[in-house]
Amino acid sequence: MTVFKLNENQLKEAMKLSEYAFQFQIAEDQIEERIETMKQHHQVYGINENDQLAAKFHLLPLSIYLGNNQLKMGGIAGVATYPEYRRKGFVKELLKEALFQIKDQGMSVSLLHPFSVPFYRKFGWELFSNRMKYILNKSDLIMKNHPNGTVKRLTKEDHSAEIERVYEQYAEQFNGMLVRERSWWQNSAYGNQFIAIYYDDNGNASGYFMYSVHNRKMNVTEFIALTSNARISLWNFICQHDSMVEQVEMTIFERDPLHFMLKEPRIKAELTPYFMARIVDLDAFLAQYDFQWNHIDQGLILHIEDDLLLDNQKSVQLHAGQILNAHDTDAGIHLSINTLTAVLFGYQRPRELVLAGLIAGSEACIEQLEALIPNRPPFFSDFF
């Protein structure tokens, strides 16, 4: 079987496969807009059978934050096969091609939203971010003492650089947040939502949330506050809808302090593993990673297993700000590319994965690895 890149004339075939596999239908007046988006932002690869598109995936060249660093990232989306062509190894070939393209195009890491976590784990992806959903009733909407500043309600037509700056400052606190281009804001982030922005007394924006209201329910899809005044003012704005809604559903960072703002914090909360990540180009990723070198005084050897990308299957020594190939030795830490991804993204600390049997090494080596990794949490609030 041969994997090929679809040309512009074949994108409608890919769209039809997505409609069938994911059981949705694109309105006739939106087809051309979808195809134009694919032309501009997607690379679509597929496999033909009997001169018909049988399977395909979309590669989205994007970037993510790792703290203040920005890394090029290959997003995988729209992986689909017609049922008559399943269990023929098509998806395995597509994913191998995806990893080759990601590395060849200078992207060191890949993200995806899994239809099956065990399936993608076989190819080296691992969970790296959770999704927290709070469900509040009308009785939970109790306002706090109102701080100075104002909240303005806007739409995506009012989008501005100041909104982007608030997002960027917030995103730099995490591992994995998407670097949003202006087109991403307009085409993907907003949808048909409103945005409420907090401005302090000096007119500076320091928080916002995106939301919709329908059938007496408010759905908050992104809540960002850089200051306490912003947080309280935005919360009060949500409470101002108490005559319009019976329920508020909020999707937020799992360690957001919302619970401490509620009179009765025992609300319904749903925590779900969300996106997966994979280190694709190990050398490039390690070179860009902000290890805390000043916290250790001797080298640490990592023995990394990657059955799919053999260039990543190696032993490396982390020492004095350098990443070197290590000599043959059993000393150090043994772990898979999956586990290394979870650890370096901050999804799990090394000690936690030692207890899960996924990391092997001496107590001294585990302490060194703990010290090397920044205490910065992962988060991903977008979707593709």
Score class of each variant (00 low, 15 high):
L6W: 09
A14K: 02
E19T: 12
Y20G: 02
F22N: 13
D29H: 12
E36P: 03
E36R: 11
H42F: 11
G46P: 11
N48W: 08
Q52Y: 10
I64C: 08
Y65W: 08
G67M: 02
K72G: 13
M73G: 00
A80H: 03
P83V: 10
Y85S: 07
V91T: 10
E93K: 12
S108Y: 06
V109M: 06
H113W: 12
P114T: 12
F115P: 00
F128Y: 12
S129K: 01
Y134R: 04
L136W: 00
L136G: 00
K138G: 08
D140G: 09
L141I: 01
L154D: 05
I163H: 09
E164T: 15
V166M: 04
V166Q: 01
A171Q: 01
V179P: 06
R180C: 07
S183C: 10
Q186W: 09
N187G: 10
N187S: 15
N187P: 08
S188I: 10
Y190T: 07
G191V: 07
N192Y: 14
F194S: 05
I197A: 14
N202C: 12
G203N: 13
N204E: 15
N204F: 11
A205T: 01
G207K: 01
M210W: 10
Y211F: 15
M218A: 10
M218W: 05
V220S: 02
I224F: 11
T227P: 07
S228W: 06
I232D: 03
L234E: 01
S243C: 03
F253R: 00
R255E: 15
P257G: 04
R266W: 13
L282K: 05
D283A: 14
F285T: 01
A287L: 10
Y289M: 05
W293R: 07
W293F: 09
D297G: 11
L302F: 09
I304K: 09
L309K: 06
V316G: 03
H319W: 09
A320H: 15
A326Y: 10
T329P: 05
T329E: 13
H334T: 05
I337A: 04
L340P: 02
T341L: 02
A342F: 10
F345V: 00
Y347H: 11
Q348K: 13
R349C: 10
P350C: 08
S362Q: 08
A364D: 15
C365L: 07
E367Y: 07
Q368H: 11
L369T: 02
I373K: 05
F380E: 00
S381A: 14
